[in-house]
Nucleic acid binder design. Structure first.
Lengths: 122, 122
DNA sequence: ATAACATATGAACAGTTATTCAGATGTTCA
DNA sequence: TGAACATCTGAATAACTGTTCATATGTTAT
């Protein structure tokens, strides 16, 4: 309903009010965009990217991942928690060992698109 | 060539050496994964996500974006620079005004996949 | 029950980053 | 040339985040 542009805090005169109003109408809900940024924030760490990339190929336990990435167990465990909170991985316990695996089919395609971008721009 | 697992720094005994070796072989090059994380790092900020989301719908100048997002011009300018360095946006100057637009077709599909993930998990 | 092992967790520290502020640069027009 | 405006930039600050360390939890086997 309220399509009025608030120019108080941007210290600019608005140049193209029509464009701004149109875009404002067409954009997704603010909340969704914040959630999206939060998702990318989770993906925006090399340790977590490497963990996910590993889990694309096999279910793995914490120690295996730590050995693979040459990092200590605690660091991996902390990051797995972050990934789990974002529902990107899930786990199952088998005795002492906890196995982690992917909990999302879309991450793979997000990664693939990202890699295409990278490979095109260098 | 060197598929030996370095377990020195992970303070774990390796449980499934076969799995670790297989995954190590199948994973993309380390460097690509770091680049990928860097890309997601750029996408992992709500201001930048909102800017890109706006640019999906129209080319816009800095002032317009600032007004749309209700932020000051300097903050937007700083973020546009980050987006440009990652080749996600490009710009053209028309007199005093600088117009920004998307410089990547893949970002849209990365966003779409991300939104699917978000919408499924709540 | 206790030792051994895999994993999880909380606190602390170091490094990174987004925004703000002040001012610089570049362009247009009178 | 100088005023007005759009944009850019560097420094400073405040907030956030990843890793490490020490320790806790949970499971198995003796």
């Amino acid at each position: 309903m309220d399509k009025k542009i608030n120019a108080d805090s941007c210290n600019c005169t608005i140049i193209h009010e029509d464009v701004v109003n149109k875009v404002k109408k067409d954009m997704p809900k603010e909340e969704k965009l914040y959630d999206l940024a939060d998702l990318f924030k989770v993906l925006g760490d090399s340790t977590r990217v490497r963990i996910l990339s590993a889990l694309f190929h096999a279910e793995m336990c914490v120690c295996d991942i730590a050995a693979l990435l040459n990092m200590n167990q605690s660091a991996i465990s902390h990051q797995l928690r972050v990934l789990k909170q974002s529902r990107l991985v899930k786990n199952r316990r088998d005795g002492k060992v906890v196995y982690y695996s992917l909990d999302d089919e879309h991450v793979k395609s997000i990664f693939d698109q990202g890699l295409i971008h990278i490979n095109e721009k260098d």
